[in-house]
C-alpha cells in the first residue's frame, strides 16, 4: 500500500505563519490604544505621566454597555472651600453667572428654620459668616450640587429633538449639534443642574467630566477636592472607594427620592432639609 506523503513542510510553514501572524496582530492590538469607539485616548491629554485614576479604562477597549459609575458626596467632609467650583469653571470655561456645579451653605436654627445661601455658586469660597441671621445656628453645613445622573431622567424625556439622552454607560449627555436651545430640559430638571449657554444658546450641563473619565481620569471637581468630600469611581472595580461605600452599611441618600428619578449621585451625612 502506497502511503501518500502529506506535504508536511508546507503545513508547518503555514502553521508557523498563521501563529506568528496571529501573535503579532494580537500584540499590536494591545500596544495600540484600542479605539473601538473612535476615541484617541491621547488626544487632548496633558503630557507627562498621568496616573490611572480609574482602573481598567486607560488604553483598554471601552465596553460602553458594561460600565457602571457612581458619585458620592460626603457632606460631613465638605468645608465649602469652592475648589470644585473653580476647577469646574476652568475645565469647561463656564460663562460667569452659570454653574455646572456649585456649593450651597445651609444653616439651621433651633426652631428648625433653614437658611440657604450660595453667593456666586461658591466660586469665591465662603469667606464670611452670614450676619443677616438673627438667631443662633444649630447646624451648619455645605452641600455640593451637580448633575444627579438620573437613571430615569426627566430632562431627556422632554427634549423634542433628541439632543439629550442617557448613554449606555449611564451618563446623561448633550448632543451639542442637535440642541435647539428650547430650554425644556432646563425646566424639567428637578435639580436645576442645567443652564442655557449665553453665547452658543445651547443647553449645558455637568457630565461628571465624561471626557476625563473616558481617559481614565477622575472628574475635575473630584481631582481638586482637598478633603475627599467628592468621591467618584467605577462599580466594576471592587477596590474602588465608592464600591466599598455602596456595599457597606453606611446611610446613603439621594436628592428628591420621591420624584423617582433614581439618581446615581449619592450623599453621605445628608440632612432631611436638603432638597
Amino acid at each position: 500500500m502506497k502511503m501518500v506523503e502529506p506535504p508536511q513542510e508546507m503545513d508547518r510553514r503555514s502553521f508557523v505563519k498563521k501563529v506568528l501572524g496571529g501573535t503579532i496582530a494580537g500584540s499590536l492590538f494591545l500596544v495600540f490604544p484600542m479605539d473601538g469607539d473612535g476615541i484617541n485616548f491621547q488626544e487632548g491629554l496633558p503630557s507627562g505621566e498621568l496616573p490611572e485614576e480609574i482602573p481598567g479604562i486607560k488604553n483598554r477597549r471601552y465596553d460602553i454597555h458594561n460600565q457602571k459609575f457612581a458619585f458620592i458626596v460626603d457632606i460631613t467632609r465638605c468645608i465649602g472651600c469652592g475648589s470644585c467650583c473653580v476647577a469646574d469653571k476652568r475645565e469647561y470655561q463656564v460663562p460667569d453667572g452659570n454653574y455646572r456645579t456649585w456649593v450651597e451653605r445651609y444653616i439651621k436654627d433651633f426652631d428648625d428654620q433653614v437658611y440657604v445661601d450660595c453667593p456666586d455658586g461658591g466660586l469665591d469660597g465662603y469667606q464670611k459668616p452670614r450676619d443677616d441671621i438673627p438667631v443662633d445656628a444649630r447646624d451648619t453645613f455645605f452641600v455640593p450640587k451637580l448633575c444627579n445622573m438620573c437613571k430615569e431622567p426627566p430632562c431627556t424625556q422632554v427634549c423634542p429633538v433628541g439632543a439629550t439622552f442617557i448613554s449606555p454607560d449611564g451618563f446623561v449627555l448633550m448632543d451639542n449639534d442637535r440642541c435647539v436651545g428650547c430650554a425644556y430640559c432646563i425646566q424639567a430638571c428637578p435639580y436645576s443642574a442645567r443652564f442655557l449657554h449665553p453665547v452658543t444658546r445651547i443647553t449645558e450641563k455637568c457630565t461628571w467630566c465624561y471626557h476625563r473619565i473616558r481617559k481614565g481620569l477622575l472628574p475635575a471637581c473630584v481631582e481638586v477636592c482637598p478633603t475627599g468630600a467628592r468621591k467618584f469611581g467605577s462599580l466594576n472595580d471592587e477596590q474602588s472607594e465608592v464600591y466599598k461605600i455602596l456595599k457597606g452599611p453606611g446611610v446613603l441618600t439621594v436628592l428628591k427620592q420621591s420624584m423617582g428619578t433614581w439618581p446615581a449621585l449619592y450623599y453621605m451625612g445628608q440632612r432631611l432639609e436638603v432638597i
Binding site: 469607539d37 476615541i39 498621568l50 475645565e91 471626557h211 481620569l217
Partner: peptide, 16 residues
C-alpha cells in the same frame, strides 16, 4: 455625540 463629548480636551492635569 457620546464620542464627541469624550473627545473634549482635558484642561486639568493631575498633581503628578
Amino acid at each position: 455625540a457620546i464620542d464627541e463629548e469624550a473627545r473634549r480636551a482635558v484642561r486639568h492635569g493631575t498633581n503628578a
